[in-house]
């Protein structure tokens, strides 16, 4: 249980942006979408990644899967370094670390029937000698879709049904770590419960580990042992989920958790509202990068970069942590 399955150290990923004119004008032409991220994921555990839209969560997940080149840092998965591996060398890795993409319908090729979509992982990995129709039936049952859905095409599925097909594809082979980007977006609360119970079962039965990206904080609380909060490509706080929900230490985490909409029309919310101006990755703020929006900020926040500190079991970067 305590064995490290994945160890990511000081990972950096960047994109070139802007055309020739921007480069000639001497404007920054690279953004670091993932900017020095470190964490470990233990075998059999679930790690949730939350944070601002555009903060680099998907980029981080794609990089783990070798879909985006590493600029600096290391990714150690089952003891093997992944950065810099060729596509061919990554193939067996992807079988052990399948990824579910953010966009449910768009990530399924429109021309392939559900049957072909579910057979594809076997074909790609040279396992077409298996009884594919039995595998398809098994997978459909596993994700709670009727058998005759094998003959449907993606556009004939509702958003939730497409999502279940995505789960089925991800768990088709022999995964040890499922990287799931918004695995329950577009599902109603009951089906969402089913998918999460399914993922939890697979974790218990097959010792599956999960890295889950989600904006649904209720989901995080129900499924993740540990969580990290991202802001501008960095982890501003990481630790045990329950502890963070009970007492967030970083002001951004506190604002995020306070925003969670509740199913009660008469609820009076006590929200921490953040100023709307989201900083640009092209011009990162000085000092603590959250200081431009932080309700807690003092003068020093604009100047000094906060070093990571441990508070309780959490690690965070803030000069004036809350709830200490």
């Amino acid at each position: 249980m305590s064995e490290d399955l994945l160890r990511v150290s000081d990972l950096r990923v960047s994109f070139r942006v802007g055309g020739l004119s921007a480069r000639l004008a001497g404007r920054a032409t690279e953004i670091e979408a993932v900017s020095g991220v470190s964490f470990t994921l233990q075998r059999g555990s679930t790690f949730a990644l939350v944070g601002e839209s555009g903060s680099g969560k998907t980029t981080l997940a794609r990089t783990l899967n070798g879909l985006q080149p590493v600029r600096a840092g290391t990714i150690l998965f089952e003891g093997q370094e992944l950065q810099g591996l060729s596509n061919a060398a990554l193939k067996p890795v992807r079988r052990r670390m399948p990824m579910m993409f953010q966009d449910p319908v768009g990530s399924l090729s429109p021309r392939l029937s559900v049957r072909s979509l579910l057979s594809e992982p076997f074909v790609i990995h040279g396992l077409s000698d298996r009884d594919l129709s039995a595998e398809v039936t098994r997978l459909l049952a596993l994700v709670g879709l009727p058998r005759d859905f094998a003959d449907r095409y993606p556009h004939q599925l509702s958003g939730g049904q497409a999502r279940r097909v995505g789960v089925a594809r991800a768990i088709a082979l022999d995964p040890v770590l499922v990287v799931a980007d918004e695995p329950t977006a577009g599902l109603d609360v009951s089906v969402q419960g089913e998918v999460l119970n399914l993922l939890n079962d697979l974790r218990d039965r097959m010792g599956l580990s999960m890295l889950i990206i989600t904006h649904n904080l209720h989901v995080v609380r129900q499924i993740a042992d540990r969580m990290a909060v991202m802001y501008l490509g960095r982890f501003v706080e990481q630790g045990e989920t329950e502890a963070i929900f009970r007492a967030p230490h970083h002001p951004y985490t506190a604002a995020l958790l306070s925003a969670n909409p509740e199913p009660d029309p008469d609820r009076v919310h006590q929200r921490i509202t953040l100023p709307a101006d989201v900083p640009s990755l092209l011009a990162r703020p000085s000092g603590c990068e959250f200081h431009t929006r932080c309700p807690q900020a003092q003068r020093r926040c604009a100047v000094d970069v906060p070093a990571p500190v441990a508070v309780g079991n959490s690690r965070l970067t803030c000069h004036f942590p809350l709830n200490t």
Binding site: V189, E194, R221, P263
Partner: peptide, 30 residues
């Protein structure tokens, strides 16, 4: 939200994880 009368609506609202104040072993489903 306060006075759902259809059994499906009642079950749907009961499945909302927002109503759970702590982690449960199995999430409610219909």
């Amino acid at each position: 939200f306060h006075d759902a009368r259809h059994p499906y609506t009642q079950k749907l609202l009961a499945c909302d994880p927002a109503r759970l104040s702590q982690r449960v072993a199995r999430l409610p489903t219909i």
